[in-house]
């Protein structure tokens, strides 16, 4: 159970953090993978690829800028061409850029919304026709506790985009339910990833460590905690769960949400 044998999953932002952990867990559970990576970022997709190959699964890596429709379509086409199917999409690619709001430019606002919200939409959109044809699909996104469930100062653009994902999955769930496609998101709390460890744009190691001492479950969240949630939501067992944003945060929102 919660296996993904011979299922095909497309994952964006797969070179690090939550995306990489999800790719690895999915491969362990029998899935073949099409991984989107943004080569301009300094992440090591080759180690992710190698670990999947070691697990005996097939993997295709595509360089993708989720701001570009043609890139996203190329990613999804790679899955269709090489594997003939797409069972699961994990729209996970995102950026966090700290900026005080009175000096947040239109360009910066648009850029974050373009990656974090429209990027999710573009990835889902590209996969819908094939899923609809199959009468089966799992469209999943990485949201955040920031935005829909809590404030994040100097991250109005990030928060707005991530809160937008909760509305996106709700409405798509209603629209695509008749096609047998479920649409859900996970809102991670503070998870130790390259993004959160960035002290300039996010909490940094100290801030991340502090949450591990104060939140109800007294340890720092790790990418595998989120990957296991995606495994559940990506499995056949969740055909009646749709439109949800599942919080995985060690209980932090319960006491300060």
């Amino acid at each position: 159970m919660f296996r993904l044998d011979n299922r095909v999953a497309v994952i964006t932002g797969a070179a690090s953090g939550i995306g990489a952990a999800t790719a690895q867990l999915f491969a362990e559970m029998g899935a073949d993978l099409v991984l989107g990576t943004h080569s301009a970022d300094d992440h090591d997709i080759e180690s992710v690829r190698a670990s999947i190959v070691r697990l005996g699964r097939r993997v295709t890596v595509v360089d993708v800028d989720v701001r570009k429709e043609e890139d996203v379509n190329r990613l999804v086409d790679a899955a269709a061409d090489e594997y003939g199917r797409i069972d699961v999409v994990i729209a996970n690619a995102a950026i966090a850029r700290r900026k005080e709001s009175s000096i947040l430019s239109d360009i910066e606002w648009n850029d974050t919304l373009d990656v974090n919200l429209a990027g999710v939409w573009r990835t889902f959109r590209a996969a819908i026709p094939l899923m609809r044809e199959a009468g089966y699909g799992r469209l999943l996104a990485t949201a955040s506790t920031a935005g829909a469930f809590e404030a994040w100062q100097e991250h109005a653009h990030y928060s707005a985009a991530k809160a937008g994902i909760t509305g996106l999955v709700r409405s798509l769930a209603a629209e695509l339910g008749p096609d047998g496609i479920t649409v859900n998101a996970i809102a991670p709390g503070i998870i130790e990833t390259p993004q959160t460890l960035d002290a300039v744009n996010s909490l940094g190691a100290e801030g991340v460590g502090e949450t591990g001492r104060t939140q109800p479950i007294r340890r720092v969240g790790v990418p595998l905690d989120i990957a296991k949630g995606f495994l559940f939501l990506g499995s056949e067992d969740t055909s009646f769960i749709t439109g949800q944003t599942m919080i995985i945060d060690g209980g932090r929102m319960l006491v300060r949400g």
């Binding site: 769930a173 969240g221 905690d225 296991k228 009646f240 769960i241 439109g243 995985i248 060690g250 319960l254």
Partner: peptide, 15 residues
């Protein structure tokens, strides 16, 4: 598999 999730009320309602 449920390691970092607590206090959640998971809806199983077909949307």
């Amino acid at each position: 598999d449920c390691t970092f999730i607590s206090g959640h009320n998971l809806m199983v309602d077909g949307g």
